[in-house]
Each structure stands twice: as structure tokens, then as C-alpha cells.
Design a protein around this nucleic acid. Sequence first.
DNA 1: TTAAATCCGACTGGTTATATCGTATTTTGT
DNA 2: ACAAAATACGATATAACCAGTCGGATTTAA
Lengths: 153, 153
Amino acid sequence: MRISKRTDYALRALFTLLDHYRGAPIPIRELARRNDVPKRFLEQIMLDLKAQGWVDSVAGIRGGYVLARSPEKITMGEVVRHFDGVLAPIECVSVMGYKRCSQEPVCRFRRVFLDTRNYIAGVMDRATLAEVAKGLPVSRQEVSANFNGGEGI
Amino acid sequence: MRISKRTDYALRALFTLLDHYRGAPIPIRELARRNDVPKRFLEQIMLDLKAQGWVDSVAGIRGGYVLARSPEKITMGEVVRHFDGVLAPIECVSVMGYKRCSQEPVCRFRRVFLDTRNYIAGVMDRATLAEVAKGLPVSRQEVSANFNGGEGI
DNA sequence: TTAAATCCGACTGGTTATATCGTATTTTGT
DNA sequence: ACAAAATACGATATAACCAGTCGGATTTAA
């Protein structure tokens, strides 16, 4: 049920680049320091983001990375899918990574996973960098809101 | 973003046991055959389900497994959490497997993951075996419904 | 007593996650 | 010209995890 560190780190970097959209390129060293990400690992990730056309690079001293597309045109869904393959919790309800399952005609719990997949895909594909960046960081209260509520969630 | 085979197989077995609730115990051989699961692997899983108090076993010939609790008292959320650890897509928004992240005070995309986590947890924790079993298997139309809809989901 | 089941622990082989490293290349400032 | 600082690229490492297998011990009904 979890996204990879790669995805996490990629998003951190992308949002940092967004904060400096149309500004000077930001070197990996700086991206790594600010986001608390291993520099050498982030290097790989940035190459990957570049290959996807999400960022551009400037080589040489005073070089670094910049956002290549307008922040309205990059969604979290795309990023997660690129690094983690699929959004669906199980292959049989995945649109991108669908795999037939012998139990499909009789499986009942499949419906539940389909439900969650649709919600996740909906949220993630609507979550452009621009839109998400407008929001404030999550407050302490919001996180623990479900702790008392549910049945021991 | 994906659940493990263990969880998948565990759920298959549980729903089969539900279909024979209060009936004769069902041997692993049968559970494996019906659900298309490797028998020896399912053996491990059933042991695990028993340790959790979800199923009971009857040893010896004519033995097998039965549901130990009423199907209203077992949720998919519990099962997924047991095998896969957490429901949350990222540790910083997990209630069970929370891990502090240095970026929390400034992270913006965290909100999106919190959103999906809350939805997933809500659905999964309401999904009792009894309730889910009432539904019909997912139809072909339902799965592909989102294919044309979204932005290339 | 035998057949068929659960029970238990060890093991394996492959994949993935998370990096690290060495070095080549590009660019700017002096 | 040259050094400093950056990206570019490919290889390596390694630890954990996943999915599954195996051998054999124990239990029970017929």
C-alpha cells in the first residue's frame, strides 16, 4: 500500500523547483539539502524526471534543475505511476497494470479495491503541482483527526 | 501502492470460509483448489489467520478450517493491516505505522496522501466480510468505467 | 493402523528498494 | 588556459522483502 522513497523524493524536488519556477536553476546539492534526501540518490531521480520531460537541466557550474512544464501540467498521479507503476492496490482493478485473475467472475472483495482505486486515481490525477502547492502543510490536528474517530484506525 | 499476495490469498480463503459459515471445516487442499492458490503457501497463511483469531482449525482427517468469528466482526482493513503493515500510502500520514518526517512542517503534497489514506481506511474498516459478501462480483463494465472517463487513468 | 489433515520451522531464489561510487562531460568565472 | 562545480551515465552493493517450497512432526477419524 505504500509509495516508494523515489516517488517521495521526486515530489519533494518537484515542489522545491516549483517554488523557484522561472528562476535560476537549482543544483542537486541544494535540492538534497533542503529536502533531506541523499544527494547521490537524488541525482538518479532527477535524471529520470528529466527523461520524462518534467524538468530541464543546465550543466556546468551555476547549473542545476528547473521545472520544464508549467505546474498545472504535472500531476501527482503521473509521478506516482511513473515510479511505482500503478495506483491500484491490486492488479485486477488496475487500468494501467491490469492482469487477469482467475477469480474475477466470483470475487467479491474486488469491488472494495476497485472503489479505493477509483478514489485514489481521481484525487491523484486532479492533483497538479500548482493546485497542491496552494494548500498549506497539514496541521497536527488534521493527522490525528481519525485516531479518535474510527474503530482504531 | 499494492497489497501483497498474502493478503489477496488470505481474503480469498476467508470469503470461501464465509460461504460455509457454521458448516463442516474446509481443508487447505480445497481452499487452495477453489481459489487458485499454491497449497503450501496457503498453509502458512492459514496458520497466520488462526494466530490472529480469525479462523479456527480442526486437525486430523476430515479436518480443515472454519471462520472463528462472526463475519460482521472481521474487516478487510484488519486483514490488510496485518499482512501489509499499514493502509497509508506514506508513513508520515499513517496512524499505525507513523514515522516522523523532517519535511512535515513544510510539505504540501502530504495533504493529498492524507486524503487518500483517510478514504482507504474508511472504506476498508467498514468493509466487514459479511457486508462485502452481500455484493455481487464486479462486472466488466464497472472496471473499464474509468478508462474513458478520466484523463487517461 | 493408516490416511489425511494441521502444525512448525527452515530454506531458497528472485526481485525490489535504496542507495553508493567512479568517472566522463559540460559550463562558468578568473 | 584552467580550475571549480555542476550534470550525465553506468556499474555495483546490499539489505530487505516477497512468494513459494520442503521435510517432517503431530493430530484425528474411520
